[in-house]
Design a binder for these strands. Sequence first.
DNA 1: AGAAATTTGATATTGAATTCACAATCACTA
DNA 2: TAGTGATTGTGAATTCAATATCAAATTTCT
Lengths: 211, 211
Amino acid sequence: MQNEKNRDKEAPKETIGRLPLYLRRLEHFQKQGKEWVTSREFVEKLPGIRSSKLRKDLSYFGDFGTQGRGYNVSRFITSLEEVLDLDSRRRAALVGVGRLGTALLNYPGFDRWGFDLCLAFDRDPEIIGSQVGGIKVDSSEEMKEKLEASRIDIGIIAVPGDQAQPVADDLVSGGVKGIVNFSPVLLDTTRDVRLTKVDITSTLEALTFYC
Amino acid sequence: MQNEKNRDKEAPKETIGRLPLYLRRLEHFQKQGKEWVTSREFVEKLPGIRSSKLRKDLSYFGDFGTQGRGYNVSRFITSLEEVLDLDSRRRAALVGVGRLGTALLNYPGFDRWGFDLCLAFDRDPEIIGSQVGGIKVDSSEEMKEKLEASRIDIGIIAVPGDQAQPVADDLVSGGVKGIVNFSPVLLDTTRDVRLTKVDITSTLEALTFYC
DNA sequence: AGAAATTTGATATTGAATTCACAATCACTA
DNA sequence: TAGTGATTGTGAATTCAATATCAAATTTCT
């Protein structure tokens, strides 16, 4: 193909954020036994997404479809999984085995999205040593060594806000490449550590503006 | 002031979404004992936010600052809390008392941020009738009446993706004004119901793409 | 095989959010 | 109290995402 305008451009983060949604939709079609799907059918049940938006989103990563026919569902799935790099697994550790932490340790989604939850830490002696979601909870004090020994890539913070920053520091010195922050505070780390935040508090607050 | 260009315009949802972030940053400055802060200082540790963006965001709600000096931290906090209406409380109901739902029912943040979690629903007979986080779980079938009787403002969806849309429909017909969606699917509702989404999956996926 | 129908991928257009740049404003100092 | 320095708030310019449009490609029909 001569014009590969978008192929080399970096995809907007909005596009990246929609890819898992597309993958879920595709799995739905596959479950239905559908072999081919057009961009129009694809977005029928996706409010806020037009077929042109889907096609543009895809244009950043390659030609996925066949003109006149649509997209081959299973090939499409394979391609998307490749783009999202779901094959290679990331080793993750969770800090803070409270209510939220416990829910996360039992959350099946981590596995689906390529995360192997290998370690869990807490500082409460009552909790240390117990099994949660099939994982033995270690003491926070042993964190650095255990992180290094297990070559952990990703840290997941599920501690209260006032403990989040020191935990983040420990994770970084333990060598993690990315942090998922479930606490309500903003974290400060070196630039080379990737931070993402799941902010329940902010979501609630933003809703109070409207309701 | 003569020119009040933005004051009457509706603030973009992006702006609203950033207000809680600003509030969090302000609390940090207050904890440090800082009395005044300039827009430049303010955004120093906020990647992706320029001082002009902060000022423009604020311009939708009034004049918060003092030219030549910056912003008075505690007055600024008060103003923002007022804009977000964090004083008044909202009555909320949760649907889906699985792992996530249970964690949410026990989550102290709801109370702290002005949400009174009054009702919980599930469709599993095993769960219906049990007490979780101090709330008795009702049957989903009684939802509409109970929502209306308790004058619920906010619905919280913590069911699997394939059940989320019908649950949302039921919440809307029960009269809620806003929905917090913890499921991984996009919801379709009438314009006058406010939707917000807490997307754990997309957050994880964003990490896998970038790390 | 040729024509009609369909759908993609690319381009053009529209719309919105972000950034720029600076006049107006205020605090502080002498 | 006039002058200086700093910072806000805002209109204009820019960038970016969403949508509409269409030519090229492919299948299907006759």
